[in-house]
Nucleic acid binder design. Structure first.
Length: 419
RNA sequence: GUGGCUGUAGCUCAGCAGGUAGAGCAUCGCGUUGUGGUCGCGAGGGCCGCGGGUUCAAGUCCCGUCAGUCACCCCA
């Protein structure tokens, strides 16, 4: 593929995040971390790869497992896989360590899926997520959605729509799936060669975007009509809770989400400002049986994941979370051999100032130019004449005014002006 | 995985119907001697994604490939 002269490129579907753009990532992750702390969620970090079977529990009929998993055998012949989503590894950790329930954790992690890349859809993508394991209280569903809705709001996003649905419990869903499947069979002609998919996972067809199916899908039986009393009551409680805290939502009966493990409440935030089909900003739902399937204790749970790359796209579309201007407080210019600058910088940085310099022997003009390019508020020049007098020249780059400050006072002098 | 579109300097793009590459921004230099940002002038930088084909001649046409992108699939 790559000839000898060709430069290496990041693998298909992956991207580098570089400064200054990376500063937006810090801001977003910081905002999430801060919100997580306010909601009582602690950071969890699980391995980037797990035993293949851990992720396989996500569901045998989900594409993420069936055809998108980066799985491999290691040198010890263990079958492993790169994490395709955040929940499975977290639940595995819960099952393994059995922390006190409810276990409320958040993460920021890269996920890997072998699929055809597009904008907002990558083979390695990052998700911010949270999981609350060990409670079936619908109050925690509400808290979870509040967590994520407020996160978007605090970033400044307004074009975000929340869809909710209930997948019901196992019994109600089984009943519904039967009805749905026979409905698809009645319309086998429309579904054509995709009928096999309908047979394997009837729910999957519901959220299809194929235009020629839309009328058939619209008339399909609704899961809500088959919910057990208990499931319906729980779904009601969630809706009431959301209304009570002024979180607008739409009930979307066709929202089924991609993973087989979901039960009861499911939700998804869509970025209205996002073009294209990649408009799901984040989503999640309950997975009340997953812990047991991982060999853990029975533990009802709920969680969500939110893609950082798509979040950035949404931020671009709404012109929020801009790339911050990179600035330093002070730029040190040394007209001698450059070693004094090192000492001064050590002092400045030790005093909490953001300070930088040029490297290598650069003439004074270039150094001042570099100071300006760095967005420095002050330029501090170390030069023989001033050094003899025990002072340094300090120039306010905003107005060009220059003064002399005693060398021993410089850190204090600047610190008091740059806080 | 299926189908469509795109691929030219670091970035954004122009290059008309095939005749051996241009702009803006960025970078660097100069406008002397210890001072930036603004301004003026100048310079460097492109196997035109890669490989093959058609042609006297290809950035420009054809095929393949890689990558990006759009729709489907699926999802964040």
């Amino acid at each position: 593929m790559a000839s000898d002269r060709e430069v290496f490129r990041a693998p298909k579907g992956t991207r580098d995040v570089l400064p200054p753009d990376s500063a937006r990532w810090l801001e977003i992750i910081g905002a999430f971390s801060d919100r997580a702390a306010r909601f009582g969620y602690g950071l969890v970090m699980t391995p980037i790869f797990e035993h293949y079977e851990v992720f396989a529990r996500v569901g045998a009929s989900t594409d993420v497992v069936k055809k998108e998993m980066y799985d491999f055998f290691d040198k010890g012949n263990r079958r492993l896989a790169l994490r395709p989503e955040g929940t499975a590894g977290t639940v595995r950790a819960f099952a393994e360590h059995r922390p006190m329930a409810p276990w409320k954790v958040w993460y920021c992690a890269a996920n890997f899926r072998y699929e055809r890349p597009q904008e907002g859809r990558y083979r390695q993508h990052w998700q911010l997520g949270a999981e609350a394991i060990g409670s079936d209280d619908p109050q925690i569903d509400i808290e979870m959605i509040d967590f994520l809705a407020g996160f978007y709001r605090e970033l400044g996003l307004t074009q975000v729509q929340l869809m909710v649905n209930s997948m019901g419990d196992a019994e109600s869903r089984a009943r519904y799936v039967d009805v749905l499947l026979s409905y698809w069979r009645e319309h086998a002609e429309t579904l054509g060669d995709e009928m096999a998919r309908a047979e394997q996972n009837p729910l999957r067809i519901l959220d299809s975007k194929r235009p020629d199916w839309q009328t058939v899908i619209a008339d399909a039986p609704k899961l809500s009509e088959y919910l057990s009393d208990e499931s319906a009551a729980q779904f009601d409680a969630v809706q009431c809770g959301l209304t009570a805290i002024d979180i607008p939502f739409t009930i979307e009966p066709r929202l089924v989400r991609g993973f087989d493990y979901y039960t009861a409440t499911v939700f998804e935030f869509q970025g209205a400002a996002l073009g294209g089909a990649q408009n799901a900003l984040g989503g999640g739902g309950r997975y009340d049986k997953l812990s047991e399937e991982m060999g853990g204790p029975p533990a009802a749970a709920i969680g969500f994941g939110s893609g950082i790359e798509r979040l950035l796209l949404a931020c671009d579309a709404e012109s929020v979370v801009p790339v911050p201007e990179s600035r330093v407080d002070v730029f040190v210019i040394d007209t001698m051999d450059g070693s004094d600058a090192g000492v001064v910088l050590h002092e400045l940085r030790g005093n909490g100032l953001r300070a930088d310099r040029s490297y290598g022997s650069k003439n004074v003009k270039k150094q001042w130019s570099a100071a300006s390019a760095a967005g420095a508020r002050f330029g501090v020049m170390l030069a023989p004449r001033e050094a003899e007098a025990g002072v340094v020249a300090v120039k306010d780059l905003r107005n060009g005014e220059q003064v002399e400050v005693a060398r021993i006072d410089i850190a204090q002098w600047l610190a008091s002006r740059c806080s």
